[in-house]
Design a protein around this nucleic acid. Structure first.
Lengths: 344, 344
DNA sequence: GTTAGCACTCCTATAATTCGAGTGCTAACT
DNA sequence: AGTTAGCACTCGAATTATAGGAGTGCTAAC
């Protein structure tokens, strides 16, 4: 059995209607609302075929049809009409990004907000993976009153991380300044992945006895950037889940909200695709059971052609895909442009 | 009608039972489970009295009694047996705080986690109000490659905030260093509330033409500390709400979760009591409608006798008050001690 | 003042009933 | 051969009926 033109139109009609209403779609409805010029009976036959093809499903014998994951997949791949945002909406996105933002953290936060507000799904933004970055600047700020100091690290991706540490009695403010200088001289431009004591062993001789302390600082730096700063996640619109009728039962709600609290899980669903551009994962295509009734869309953002990170959204499989895609594309576009500016 | 001893015992029994089971408590149950030496009929009479006093309520005619807000209030004020944590639990709390934490942010995050895990309610920790604090250290870290710089501010309460800003062409790295030095020399120990250009006007002459830039930095500093760093909120166990049977209906769940997303609202319910020590607000005593089925417990933490901030929890009015109180007291105690150490 | 007894109330759970949307099949039609 | 009208059938959702039980308030006796 092949997908002829009429089957496609019927499938599209069913899916669109189901996305709109959330109710199983019957042959009658399709015939009435989408004038395909054929009777309900014919549509019934076609729908039976589409079910056999695995594109539609019946919740129970005497109900209409709903799309299967596979049906959504076909729809997204072959049938979906790409929908551009209206000029007003595009302008709106640009406007949102126009406000003064100096830091990538802030930009990503705003990005998540924009996506969730424009789609009313849950937005996820992933900060650039630091491993591929470089150290831009390191600074040690002494806090003499408390014999502590603050290690501040700025990476080439613009993430700023900081951490406090104790300073032993015998290390002076001057020492700290010197170490800070060393670090900057030697670490600027070093790939973060390669950050380890060995690289810097030749500095040791200049440090007259503060070797252990210095080692400690390098270790702290590693941790600060690689652990604290590792692909930070910005979520927004988590509670949009509450408005989705498919998740009104307590159980699935709990599952999804709990899922969204696990950073590791979020990185997993985002990270598996290292590809550029747009990715759509529908229902069970996400390997996570908790969200097998959800779809996850991802789009990468980049600066100067270099892939930086990803943003995306999570919503029910019954999602307005074309809307979601166009919002993501528009946002990713603006986002890339804004980051470009921030990075000079 | 007065509260005699027997009425008290019956009220306590009803409340305890209701807290435990969540079901309306009947006279029979009280008679059986709490041996007061009287028959159900007597208890029935007493319960009718307690209802008339406004301490108990009947969901419907043929159900048992449940406590009213006022009933809980009486229980909390007069009847509740103060319950100490077991030595093991006290040890556990101490253990949790033993892990190496250098920053107050981390400590508060951990605090919220401990509270929510030990009570299975939602924990809230409020960072110290910066207004009362001093600036401990200010630093400007130049990022020459991007002609930007990072302003880092450390307050006496140990909060670290940072913000990136643009550096005009004619301002050199040296200038930044000088400004940084000025700031530290002049601002250390200045009350954050008083932070404004005027205080520093006498610096201007030393800055040879960078006045506007300098003004900008001061303004940025204000914002960074007063806005970004204003009573930061640390939440944990938000999803514990999902396990409370009283909030299993979609509507109230939505209301509460939405409420918990509003920082301003959280500050409101915490802030209204400027008192030291423990505060308990039951049901409608919280002036927020969204949480009129919830109780909020607050306890202040302090360092060297000086009130710093507050931590607390939010749960259903049907809450294990004595448990919650003892956890909060134990945690606030340890928290104060840990902060003491951090502040040297 | 306390208690046993009893009629009464009202919620909850379960079962029975109805209703209607939607299907699949068949036979007739183009 | 594909399309369509007609019709019996299915099955869930909503509605109503029914039974059960926990708990009360009242009364009268202790």
């Amino acid at each position: 059995m092949r997908m002829d033109e009429r089957k496609k139109r019927i499938l599209a009609a069913v899916i669109q209607d189901y996305i709109r209403t959330g109710e199983p779609v019957g042959s009658r409805t399709v015939a009435r609302r989408y004038n395909l010029g054929v009777s309900p009976a014919t549509i019934r036959n076609e729908m039976a075929d589409l079910e056999e093809l695995g594109l539609l499903e019946q919740p129970h014998t005497s109900a209409g049809r709903i799309p299967s994951d596979y049906g959504y997949r076909y729809f997204v791949d072959c049938l979906m009409a790409p929908e551009e945002l209206t000029p007003e909406e595009q302008e709106y996105v640009r406007l949102r990004y126009n406000k003064k933002m100096m830091e990538i953290e802030q930009v990503l936060e705003e990005t998540a907000k924009i996506i969730s507000q424009m789609t009313s799904y849950t937005a996820i933004a992933l900060a650039p993976n630091q491993n591929q970055g470089f150290l831009e600047q390191v600074e040690i700020v002494p806090i003499p009153l408390k014999s502590k100091a603050l290690l501040v690290a700025i990476t080439s991706t613009g993430m700023v991380e900081h951490k406090t540490f104790n300073v032993p009695q015998d290390v002076t403010s001057e020492d700290l300044k010197r170490i800070s200088k060393f670090l900057n001289a030697r670490l600027q431009g070093i790939a973060i992945e390669e950050l380890c004591q060995e690289v810097l062993s030749d500095i040791y001789q200049e440090l007259e006895g503060h070797r252990e302390f210095f080692k400690g600082i390098i270790e702290l730096l590693r941790q600060t950037i690689l652990i604290d700063g590792y692909e930070k996640i910005y979520l927004d619109g988590t509670l949009n889940i509450l408005s989705q009728p498919e998740f009104k039962d307590h159980e699935s709600l709990k599952r999804i909200l709990t899922f969204l609290e696990q950073d590791a899980a979020l990185r997993r669903i985002f990270g598996t695709t290292s590809s550029k551009g747009l990715t759509i994962k529908i229902g069970q295509e996400n390997k996570e059971e908790c969200i097998d009734k959800c779809s996850v869309l991802t789009i990468s953002y980049s600066v100067e052609g270099k892939l930086m990170g990803k943003v995306g959204l999570l919503g029910p499989t019954r999602m307005q895909y074309s809307r979601a895609v166009s919002v993501l594309q528009c946002v990713a576009d603006s986002l890339s442009r804004v980051l470009q500016k921030i990075y000079c």
